[in-house]
């Protein structure tokens, strides 16, 4: 009987396994293949070793994405907390407002920000100023925060709204001021949501290329831009090598982070 059941399970899982192999495992293997071969297809460490040249770009990417993630957290946590603590109807409204921009394509949104912040854009016209925003680090960080904020808010919101409402009462009963209720009980209990949120903002931020291209006004090159340039110019092996190393670095940092989250749910990756 168990045999029959496991057969049924295999059949049910087959499409997913097929999908995963075709679109996840196989592409990863191809990336790895290109990363460790030269243009003629011979095995080589050349690509990996040449990555030292990109250290500055990588550090800049890291700097901007870490700042963007922090800003997202600082804005996102209180927002998620307020939403989770409001009435069910208000919650639905807030979540919808939060999701609404995501119904628009990311590229279109980024172009819109450009139109607003540009030197002769809406903002400058409105204020009758000549603020130079596009092309600064601030613009890139703003773009990242704007695009990825919902990915910070949603997991934290989900996590806080699942916390037993008696936790607030118990903490307050045992002597916690309203602030301490949050710092001593609610924040620790929502840590898995925070980890997920940080992951979901940090990963796309560090590897983005269109935000830096459009809002950076061509003055920045982030690691995502570099990878894109390699592939566009046909340097497949270098592009693959950078992608591969990035992936490894991200996986390592996520594993470390998930240690902090140490929870059976909420940790999205690893």
């Amino acid at each position: 009987m168990t045999k029959k059941r496991s057969l049924m399970r295999s059949i049910a899982a087959a499409p997913h396994v097929f999908w995963a192999v075709l679109f996840i495992v196989l592409p990863l293997l191809i990336v790895a293949y290109y990363a460790f071969t030269d243009a003629d297809g011979a095995f080589s460490f050349e690509n990996i070793l040449s990555l030292a040249d990109y250290a500055d770009i990588f550090l800049l990417s890291l700097e901007l994405s870490v700042i963007a993630t922090l800003v997202c957290f600082v804005i996102g946590y209180p927002l998620a907390y307020i939403i989770a603590r409001s009435k069910p109807r208000t919650q639905k409204l807030f979540i919808m407002l939060l999701m609404l921009p995501m119904w628009t394509n990311l590229l279109i949104r980024t172009y819109s920000i450009m139109a607003i912040l540009d030197d002769g854009g809406f903002l400058n016209q409105l204020l009758n100023t000549e603020l130079h925003i596009i092309g600064t680090k601030g613009a890139v960080i703003f773009g990242m925060v704007y695009d990825f904020l919902p990915y910070m808010v949603l997991p934290i919101y989900t996590c806080i709204s699942k916390i037993d409402k008696h936790m607030w009462e118990a903490a307050s009963d045992l002597g916690c001021t309203p602030v301490r209720v949050i710092t001593k009980v609610i924040f620790p209990l929502s840590l898995s949501g925070v980890i997920s949120g940080i992951t979901m903002v940090f990963v796309p931020s560090i590897s983005t290329f269109y935000i830096s291209q459009k809002l950076g006004g061509g003055t920045f090159e982030l690691i995502g831009d570099t990878i894109e340039r390699q592939f566009v110019t046909g340097a497949l092996n270098t592009g693959a090598a950078i992608s591969f190393v990035m992936m490894i670095l991200i996986m390592i940092s996520l594993t470390v982070m998930n240690r902090f989250g140490d929870s059976d749910e909420g940790g999205i990756i690893v």
Partner: peptide, 8 residues
């Protein structure tokens, strides 16, 4: 009623 112990 449901104890409300701190799970963390």
């Amino acid at each position: 009623q449901k104890y409300a112990l701190f799970p963390h």
